[in-house]
Simulated scan of single mutants.
Amino acid sequence: MPVYVTDKPLNLTSHDVVAHARRALHTRRVGHTGTLDPLATGVLVLCVEGSTKLVQFMEADSKDYLAYISLGAGTPTLDAEGPVEETASVPALSGKEVQEALDRFLGPGMQVPPQYSAIQVNGQRAYAAARAGEHTELPARPVELHELTALGLYGSVQEAPRTFTPDAGGRWQVAETGHTFTLPPALGEFPTLLVWARVGSGTYIRSLARDIGAALGTVAHLSGLVRTRAGRFGLEQAVNVDDLGGAAGLDDLKALALPTIAASPELALQLRQGQRPEWTAAGRFLVTLNGELVAVADGDGQALKVVRAWA
């Protein structure tokens, strides 16, 4: 039940990558753990066959990004799909002022999703309503931002660096050699802030770009985005979409950062039958038998209760 880490190319949807994986891996059972917009690139984790049961747990994982935020130009999509519908002057900003503005977003907060998003409102996707010229009032949703670091403010997105390398903590830095990323065509020459971000699940980086622009006294759009990590999987482990057919995949037991219970055959059978065997430890556990997944189970200090089981 392997997990595959892909490097999603520019201009493909996440659904496009899933469809390609189904053909390359000869299975219909493929799911992903967090959508990337067509104009974003980077880590898209695919779960195949039995590992699709892990998706519900992996969707809540935190994610890391390199975000290019162009200041002085706003778009209805909040990204480089455009068009530019609003412009504003950009105040002179010191590095200290920029970082202080970013720091104000850290921690739990509320975020209004983009109008062009897949959120359903009254049975309709928000992006469908937006494309029909309708404005939908999307309620703010809780998000949590763990780290935001300004890597530089450049004269335009064209002048901003494209080559990076990760440090030991997985934080990507501008480098002379390393991974070189492709960005979508720029909508113009606008001052561009480069930010490394570590965020909780459900965070829209497009909305964050909009809000950072407002915090800096102007408008903004996301002119480039690279996801460098999703949960326990980083870009260093990713394979090209075209190479999926020959890729070995990764061990699904490494997908969840949970303590592991090496079960006896009796305990494994009880959990697979939906029983609640005695267990004195509390918390969520990954249960295995002979190195194979049996269940994800919650302990309350008295017994285990199955959240999801594998046959």
Rank of each mutant, 00 (worst) to 15 (best):
W172T: 11
T203I: 08
R232Q: 14
T228L: 04
T203D: 06
G231S: 05
G178V: 11
S223A: 15
G234E: 01
R210F: 14
R227G: 08
T203V: 10
V199K: 01
A214N: 04
V219A: 05
G202W: 09
A197N: 01
R198F: 02
D211T: 09
E189Y: 00
P184E: 03
F190K: 00
A220V: 12
V226W: 00
W172D: 06
S201I: 12
A230H: 06
T177W: 10
R227I: 11
G224H: 08
T218C: 03
Q237M: 15
T177M: 10
I205G: 09
P191Q: 02
A175W: 01
A238K: 03
I212C: 04
G217W: 13
T218D: 04
I212Y: 00
E189R: 09
A220R: 10
H221F: 14
G234Q: 03
E236N: 13
R210I: 15
L208W: 11
R232M: 13
P184D: 05
L194E: 05
G217Q: 04
L216V: 13
R171S: 06
W196G: 13
L222V: 12
A186M: 05
E189M: 08
F233D: 05
T228K: 01
E176T: 15
R229D: 09
Q237T: 06
G217Y: 12
P184A: 07
L194H: 06
I212D: 01
A238R: 00
V226M: 01
A175L: 08
W172H: 05
G170I: 14
R206K: 12
G178F: 04
P185A: 03
V219Y: 02
V239N: 02
R198C: 12
A214I: 03
